[in-house]
Nucleic acid binder design. Sequence first.
DNA 1: CCTATTTGGTTCATTATTTGAACCGTCCAT
DNA 2: ATGGACGGTTCAAATAATGAACCAAATAGG
Lengths: 258, 258
Amino acid sequence: MGTVTKALGLLDHFSTKAPQLGLSDFQRLTGFDKATVYRHLSALCEMGFVEQDSHNRAYRLGPSIIRLAHLREQTRPVRDIIAPIIDQLAETLGELVHASLLHGATLSSVYHTNPNQYGLKVDFEGFETLPMHASASGHAAMAFSEPVLLEEVIANGLPAITQKAITSPEVLRSIIERARQKGFSQCEEAVEIGVSAYAVPLFDADGQANGALATAFPVSRATDQHRQRIVRELVSIAPEVSERLGGKPPASVLEAWS
Amino acid sequence: MGTVTKALGLLDHFSTKAPQLGLSDFQRLTGFDKATVYRHLSALCEMGFVEQDSHNRAYRLGPSIIRLAHLREQTRPVRDIIAPIIDQLAETLGELVHASLLHGATLSSVYHTNPNQYGLKVDFEGFETLPMHASASGHAAMAFSEPVLLEEVIANGLPAITQKAITSPEVLRSIIERARQKGFSQCEEAVEIGVSAYAVPLFDADGQANGALATAFPVSRATDQHRQRIVRELVSIAPEVSERLGGKPPASVLEAWS
DNA sequence: CCTATTTGGTTCATTATTTGAACCGTCCAT
DNA sequence: ATGGACGGTTCAAATAATGAACCAAATAGG
């Protein structure tokens, strides 16, 4: 593994539950040597990607990230474009809606909204990156990307996140094939027991999937009617989202969605 | 220079004017070897800090940055807190207002607003990081930080950005001393000819400056009245901004501001 | 249409940087 | 006082970064 990859990998250990991490925390989380972690954090600190709490000496995400995010949003405003759509969709469905973007074999969560309609909610905190093989978003993205992506994911191994998770390559392949035909993916309790999810792919200008739009909800609310409504809404908004992002769903998918 | 620093330094070459850069562009901008740049970009790409345009092969800022920025804003919402204040201040003054955060010897621009009141505007694009020795924000930040910061900036050299720029350490020291006494800094045509600026420091919980709030305007509008109004508004909003950010200006500064 | 140039990407021996065990000072709770 | 956890530092050993040369593809020019 390259040094840069290692250093940037440190940032992935931050989460809403752990917004500040000490040197020893990183040591434990990564298994790297203390000195290594320290130097990497120092480099990140120097570049403003992390900053140190003046009391704790704990590290947290730094201001450079805000600056760069602002810069990216100015030229490629995916978050600002997606946010209102997701907010509204979450409102009408009453369920958690989130969007994620694909890079390599990773899905980065870009935005999510959890409406206040029900008391029982799906907690999305901690899912800053989604498991490709065990999430509706991952299936939707893989179904409409280069087939090599699916192979890569399978090669990386399919850890069982829950008891009902998909661990067999064959099953995964068939699930993704079905998603390809239907134009959306469905995932039952693969990422967390008691949670169902549906997702539609987002497309770039080449007609390749570059992300996913998904909604997750408790199985206890999963009546046929509710499910149908969710799929209907996702599918109906999907073309617009891709379009607003500068992408274009392929004709075959548009047909499946109609 | 460390490898990580080098790699992350690549990201600083992106700007609103150059949101996409090719391999050769980076080669020219950095002076590094092509292979080096390529490997660094590949690593950044792998981690989602840049992504490649599928046609151009040009690189642009990637989705991980959005994810991390979102995460940081959830726990430390400086941008979301600052934005409305700046928007309003820009509106009342009719001039460009911007905020920046200090990390090491660098000022990262965090947010800025340019109102539509006048036809002649100060163009802030391209100033993603501000020169410490030649900007009102830099002076304000240095005046209320560890004195070692000023020494570091002087040691790094004082390049003449404009003809009127400050290039002498003595002059810089006296300017900063004056800012320390007044509680704000003034900068005339140091970053660009024809542009004046005022800035107030932002403080962290320790009473150390960790950023600055500034406004820049054309000298052609710089009547004494306009200047006084700008200073008055900056100084009056400054305590609240620091406070909303979880910081606290030292008593001496609060006195200078009142 | 063919050539020249630029660009993105790759390779491999050399070099320089990263690495990690051991070490030090500090803070905290016992 | 004392033990442990933590942040930080050091130096020889090992590993990863480096850059000149090379290749292929795309673009530009005549």
